[in-house]
Design a protein around this nucleic acid. Structure first.
Lengths: 223, 223
DNA sequence: GCGCGGGCTTTGTGATCACAGGTTGTTCAT
DNA sequence: ATGAACAACCTGTGATCACAAAGCCCGCGC
């Protein structure tokens, strides 16, 4: 192995969807939010780099960005792990969801047309499918898609971003949570949300969203 | 110029307070949150690096972290600027404050002892001083310190972090806002907050905080 | 059998460089 | 004088390397 090395290695970058660090970031973020990784798993920059075929530099940027959003935990020595949340932290994040999501739903309500409700029904049907298959990741993903689709109508990007940050932080925990629980009741809550939406009932919608969001996460803490 | 170069430059790092990128991050964050930089100002990695006596690498990490928190804006080509928010964005962030801060205040209320109220009074006195001196940055800083001191008692780190993220995003805007406005009314609101705290009046406290938070930011949009 | 010390390995940090794309300023032609 | 084309410069991106410190494991001593 020649020590000096010619230098000038440019594979001309596939650049399929933006820069390298963004690709790493997006992929990792998706994995974490949908609960593909369990809490407390260790990651290494070199390992991530190897997985994505990039050097440590973009891996580091992606990791730091995720850590800034609370999607990853950095130990004092810089070690990277998925977050393993304390019950208090979980409760706090649940409270945040209970605070933000009814507001987003209420803002979406006046803009919710029939087409949106129909789309939500479709997504909710997909939730039933994945529940039947005991597909935890698929369940989390489609459940969040249900909420996100509704909130997108609120036209409140900063608020939505904040809620997604909370979802991110809860990702690994949700996996652990939903793996040990029956989930037929969740669809019931989603149906209540849809009913309130169709009726244009704002107080009912706020309550339905709050209940849906709260009860799933209360299970772990209050068991 | 020798191509290989000796390599091996380690000034043994001062390491006064953690890693280089953290020092850069903390300083920049403080500057942005307290409104020391106006909206739309351009920054460069090399420039930041030179300012802090570090290379581009830690500068880049600090910038990306700040961008992830919304404290800086990255253009499509990667250019870095302080955020110049649209009125809709400002209103949304104000709504976020109006949603989160009363909750934090309410959670702090049962834990608020006399010593805390006294401390808040002191901070509020400092607000009066800086207002008299027309020191915008000092005003923003002590105003936020008033709120942060109260919310710290809520024992809700995730919620506090979220609110601070909102403050960060509003930093440069607050500067532009407060520079063109009289501010004697702000202390009045703070006094109302203190009265509700002392009386243990939760609804009154929620309202007082919401009013304090909302009205200052409503000025810009609704003028 | 169990704890502890010392080496080897792994891992994050930061500096430097090559490169590409964007920005800017200048000059030339109309 | 105004517009476009071009060149020089500026700026972010990513790879690679040196380094330090933290972790890990094996073996020694009690």
């Amino acid at each position: 192995m020649e020590p000096p090395a010619p230098l000038s290695t440019r594979i001309t970058a596939p650049d399929v969807q933006g820069s390298a660090h963004e690709r790493v970031y997006r992929t990792l973020r998706g994995r974490i939010m949908s609960g593909e990784m369990e809490p407390g798993v260790a990651l290494t920059l070199r390992g991530i780099g190897k997985d994505f075929g990039v050097s440590m530099t973009p891996a580091r940027e992606a990791v730091r960005r995720l850590a800034a959003e609370g999607a990853l935990t950095l130990s004092a020595s810089g070690r990277v792990t998925t977050p393993d949340l304390s019950p208090e932290r979980i409760e706090e994040l649940a409270a945040l969801r209970a605070l933000l999501e009814p507001e987003l739903a209420a803002r979406a309500l006046p803009r919710a047309h029939m087409a949106l409700i129909e789309r939500l029904r479709t997504i909710n049907g997909r939730v039933a499918e994945v529940v039947a298959k005991h597909d935890v990741t698929g369940y989390i993903r489609s459940n969040l898609e249900f909420h996100r689709t509704l909130y997108l109508r609120a036209q409140a990007p900063a608020m939505l971003a904040m809620v997604e940050t909370v979802w991110l932080q809860l990702g690994p925990t949700m996996r652990a949570l939903y793996m040990s629980k029956d989930r037929t009741d969740l669809q019931k809550h989603h149906r209540t949300i849809l009913a309130a939406l169709a009726a244009g009932d704002e107080p009912g919608l706020r309550l339905a969203v709050r209940t849906d969001v709260t009860q799933g996460l209360r299970m772990l803490v209050g068991l």
